[in-house]
Design a protein around this nucleic acid. Structure first.
Lengths: 337, 337
DNA sequence: CTGTTAGCGCATTCAA
DNA sequence: TTGAATGCGCTAACAG
């Protein structure tokens, strides 16, 4: 009942040749006679021979698997990144082992441990919002497992990374709001751990400077991304004497919470208050009053570029060479709705 | 620079004992002297010994990996299912290899091939909407790789499956609409391939019968789940003389398209027309006019139950026994918003 | 209670 | 151009 999976040994026996010849024939080794090679390949196909991956992995000391650590899978943003990683991995005949940190540092640390034990060949990671040290990733160096950070990248030197620069789009976004006549633009920033490359804030500043507008520090508030915290933040903004008429929200999630809260407070969206946001979820097209614009960060491309970089590192490693740290920066785009 | 990973051989040498003794000691084999066992375990810890998974996989002829095939990862629904599968897999020290069929039959077939080549120990699948034959899954039987279908389950005998029954919730949903005074309830059904266990339709019928309402066949329309098709379907309903005042939508996606289209046609949601839907996306809480109710299908639980069933099958297999086909049916719940 | 041995499937080195 | 032999790390059958 169980179909027996053939091995090179059986092919060898049937053809009365040695296993090494079979192995070489199957790999198009140059020093194999055309006749034998053809014979072997023909029989292999007939017998439905398929190399035993577990054996190869064992022999090569590689798993042909890369670990992908994400904060979560719920956000479509990350699931698009997965597709980018998977497509690239597939092209390289690699598997992807996905794990969610659920934005918890200790889970992230455990995942790294698990992946190391499973001997993944390399790791791609978008860090959790609690991650304030990357010691657990640095530890992988000792095992010669390369790591590429992407999207959510820690602000430390000597790492490989791929991320999307938000600076120019942010300037553009704030200037768009100015152009629409908004005098006072608030900014709801995310947790500091995710803000280390504070490009949103820099862009916010630049836009104000370029347009000779003063910055009111009370227009800048912070959320830890929980709904409650976001509501507290927006509440702070709305209760100001001269409250902002437009808001730059850390991401679409924050934007949604902001919009909902503002509506609850009887504010008319896009009239009393406008929102610009980051991420560009497809879902926002279903909103009655969507953000006026979104900053697209190309998660699919970030994922595939990160995977490509990782394969470059793996390739170098197999040639016993070491590449310098590389930091790839993509450019975001402002999408006006 | 590269940290050398110790093996049992080295432990054995250091203690002047044999590798098999080390192996047994590490596995708490009963026939090992307490002293030696302690010694071994102590040294192993000191040396940071970690068993080489690739070697074990090779030796055992197992990958300790299960394949998970999903239509896509974008829908939060499926990402919750992933979490259910992963948590259960983790408890069993298994890895999960995830792939997306993107609702295409040929991709699904290729994925099955790939997973077989990678020698996954078992497969979990929620079929694509094009899947009209499960020959590619049946083929896995010959390799003794068990398959569990879940959520989107084909309507054929002799399979293992886990799904969520929608019948009672659908009756409840339609009766809720009746109770709210709706005389005419339309139904936008999905593609036939996903409708084989037509529980939505059955529930729709039952509710009408129970309440002695005739069924108007023109109130039942079909979408292939693309936006265009959904719009055509709702257009059909809205252009009827006696158009429905409430709609049962195949899922939240269809519900969103329906609501948006109705708004475009200047209908007041929840007044001129109400919607009930399946899936209960968190996102709908952000809508100004969400569906009046949703049928929750517990994707996380479906995923974990499916994984548990698969492990039961794997366990039986390792004992050379074969279990009868099992079909686990969960019950959906109507969530009124 | 412990050691010896064999072997999983494959790639590869060395020898012919 | 091909074959024989080796070993990757581990488990388990068999022997003591």
């Amino acid at each position: 009942m169980e179909k027996k999976v053939p091995t090179i040994k059986e092919i060898a026996k049937k053809l009365n040749i040695s296993v090494s010849t079979v192995s070489r024939a199957l790999h198009d080794h140059p020093s194999i006679g055309l006749r034998t090679k053809m014979q072997v390949q023909k029989l292999a196909k007939e017998m439905n021979y398929e190399p035993n991956q577990t054996a190869i992995r064992f022999k090569q000391g590689k798993t042909f698997t890369l670990g992908l650590i994400l904060p979560n899978l719920q956000e479509e943003y990350f699931s698009l990144a997965i597709s980018g990683v998977e497509d690239t991995a597939f092209k390289n005949n690699y598997n992807v082992l996905i794990s969610q940190s659920h934005d918890l540092l200790d889970r992230e640390q455990k995942i790294v441990e698990t992946m190391r034990k499973h001997r993944v060949d390399g790791v791609l990671v978008s860090i959790s919002k609690q991650t304030n040290s990357i010691a657990h990733f640095k530890q992988l160096d000792e095992y010669n497992i390369p790591v590429v950070f992407f999207d959510r990248v820690p602000n430390v030197p000597d790492i490989h990374s791929v991320w999307c620069s938000l600076y120019y789009s942010t300037v553009e976004a704030v200037e768009l709001l100015f152009a629409k006549g908004h005098q006072r633009v608030g900014y709801i920033q995310g947790p500091l751990s995710l803000n280390i490359k504070n490009e949103r804030l820099e862009g916010y500043h630049t836009a104000h400077e370029k347009n000779k507008r003063p910055i009111n520090q009370s227009y800048i508030v912070t959320t830890d991304l929980s709904r409650k915290s976001t509501e507290a933040a927006i509440e702070k903004l709305l209760s100001l004497n001269n409250r902002p008429t437009a808001i730059l929200a850390f991401n679409d999630n924050v934007a949604l919470d902001t919009i909902q809260y503002a509506k609850k407070k009887k504010l008319k969206i896009n009239k009393d208050i406008s929102v610009v946001s980051y991420a560009n979820w497809p879902i926002i097209s279903y909103l009655d009053f969507p953000p006026v614009a979104s900053v697209e960060q190309f998660p699919y491309e970030q994922g595939s570029r990160a995977a490509e970089l990782l394969f470059k590192l793996l390739d170098a490693k197999s040639r016993e060479s070491v590449l310098p740290y590389e930091n790839i920066v993509l450019k975001s785009e402002l999408i006006v709705h």
